[in-house]
């Protein structure tokens, strides 16, 4: 599958998500790439639904192994999570650990009615029982391969696929 154009993948996500949007939904992006995708989704869906951002640094499961991330951003959830249908958005789904941390963080704001997960790319390689409800692309990459979403100075999104040091 060609993943050269993130905008096409976002279009694909929009097509999947649009029929399910209701007034009691909210978009929440995970820093940093997930926030970019979330903003693009919110804009294209054109619904005036609340949005929020999460930085999972304080909820990571590898803190005791690697310490605190040097660049933590504030989490901002400017709406009441209680009874909301939350669409959690990330750029790349890999092990599932980020999503696990994000859900724990989200629950510290309240009890959502539901959480569904939308990702630009599901690259396989899960280590937890987590799956994406919506994905722009589903790939099976080898552990050494690395896919990342980048944003240039003009605000354009790019996906980079590296083979990594095998």
């Amino acid at each position: 599958m060609n993943i050269d154009n993130p905008n096409q993948l976002i279009d694909r996500l929009v097509a999947q998500i649009a029929p399910l949007m209701q007034d009691d939904c909210a978009f929440v992006g995970i820093h940093s790439g997930g926030v970019w995708v979330m903003e693009a989704l919110a804009e294209r869906l054109g619904r005036d639904l609340p949005t929020g951002t999460l930085d999972i640094s304080f909820y990571r499961d590898d803190f005791s192994r690697i310490g605190l991330h040097p660049e933590v951003k504030p989490s901002q959830i400017p709406f009441d999570v209680e009874n909301r249908h939350v669409l959690l958005v990330d750029d790349v789904l890999y092990t599932g650990r980020t999503v696990r941390a994000a859900m724990n963080l989200l629950f510290d704001y309240g009890r959502p009615a539901s959480i569904r997960l939308a990702v630009l790319v599901d690259r396989g390689g899960r280590e937890l029982p987590i799956c994406a409800d919506f994905a722009g692309a589903r790939l099976e990459l080898a552990p050494g391969q690395h896919v990342a979403l980048l944003r240039d100075d003009a605000g354009e999104l790019h996906l980079s696929l590296n083979q990594g040091a095998a």
Partner: peptide
Amino acid sequence: ESFIPVGERELKKVPL
């Protein structure tokens, strides 16, 4: 700066 919003939540704790 990132800990400021934690203090403004109803649940003012992180598991770090």
